[in-house]
Simulated assay, not measured.
Amino acid sequence: MLKSILPCGLAMLAFGMAAMPAVAATENLIVNGTFDDFTTGWIGNYQIRSNDPVIDTGSYFFPGAGAFHMIYQNYTLTDTDLASLWDTGLSYTLSADLFGWHNQQDRGTLSVFFLDGEGDRITSSTLMSSTLYDGWWDTEITAGGKYYQSVSGLVPTDTMTLQFVISSTRIGGGTNNDGYIDNASFTMAELPAVPLPAGLPLLGSGLVVLAGLRGLRRRRS
């Protein structure tokens, strides 16, 4: 009896899990991640650049002079975000095009820091240009192509604020810091709710019947 019940129940369980609908992601939470508006979104000094190299989406983040450069912006989770985070949970995707100038090894990073209600860091995630390439950049860049990177994960349940940080470090000498970044993006999506699988009641009923049959056999013996 058990052999006939378990395969059926497990098959229905797998069907119920596979049928869970995908949930659409939020819009990009990073303001001016394309650096098409020089004055919007970011805290800190920076420049924009649009040639040498050229990227097909226009201007991009250019640190300028100096050995190290950093800018940032914060996003406070809304009541709707928090309700989803505490109810089903939230996944995230952090992405950007990260590149540099000719044969310079200067590197750029895009990070997200997950902060709790006290502003303390819970965890973080970072993209770095030198993860894929360390200098010798192309002179023409295609957004979402060779230099595109992304990372995904789960938003910690204690998160109240997201802090997005771009930093660039000069490695190869010269006057300028040439860790470039464009099309910075951070999206979140609700985790799909886990419904009661269709096969679970059947599996449970079968186990109850099996237990009853075993009890009857014991009484007869």
Rank of each mutant, 00 (worst) to 15 (best):
N28P: 13
A19M: 12
I55S: 05
I43W: 00
L98A: 01
Y60D: 11
K146V: 05
L82V: 15
D87G: 15
L29H: 08
P63R: 02
G16N: 06
G58V: 05
D97N: 13
G44I: 08
R121W: 00
D37P: 00
I122R: 10
D56W: 04
D87I: 07
W42E: 01
M20T: 14
F15P: 00
G145K: 13
H102R: 06
P7T: 14
L82M: 12
E27W: 01
W101M: 01
M1D: 09
E140T: 15
P63I: 06
T123A: 09
F38C: 00
G58M: 11
D87E: 02
G66K: 08
T131F: 13
W136M: 05
G119P: 02
A18Y: 08
W101A: 08
T57N: 13
Q104G: 00
N103V: 08
D36V: 08
A65V: 12
K3N: 10
Y147H: 09
L13I: 13
D134I: 03
D97V: 08
G64K: 01
Y92M: 10
I30P: 03
T131Y: 14
T123L: 03
A18W: 15
P7A: 03
C8Y: 11
D138G: 03
T80M: 11
L90K: 04
W136D: 14
F113D: 14
F62H: 11
V54W: 09
D120V: 06
L13D: 08
N45V: 03
D81M: 10
N28L: 01
L77H: 09
F114D: 11
S4T: 11
I48Y: 04
Y133K: 14
E27D: 14
A24C: 04
T126C: 00
G117H: 03
A19P: 03
T142S: 14
F61Q: 06
A96S: 13
N74E: 13
T76D: 13
A19I: 12
E140F: 10
A22H: 09
L110K: 03
S4A: 07
S124D: 14
T109Y: 06
V54P: 00
L2S: 02
W86S: 03
S124W: 01
Q73N: 02
T40G: 00
G16S: 10
A67H: 09
A19D: 15
G135M: 06
A96Q: 09
N103K: 04
S59H: 02
I122P: 13
A143D: 15
F35A: 07
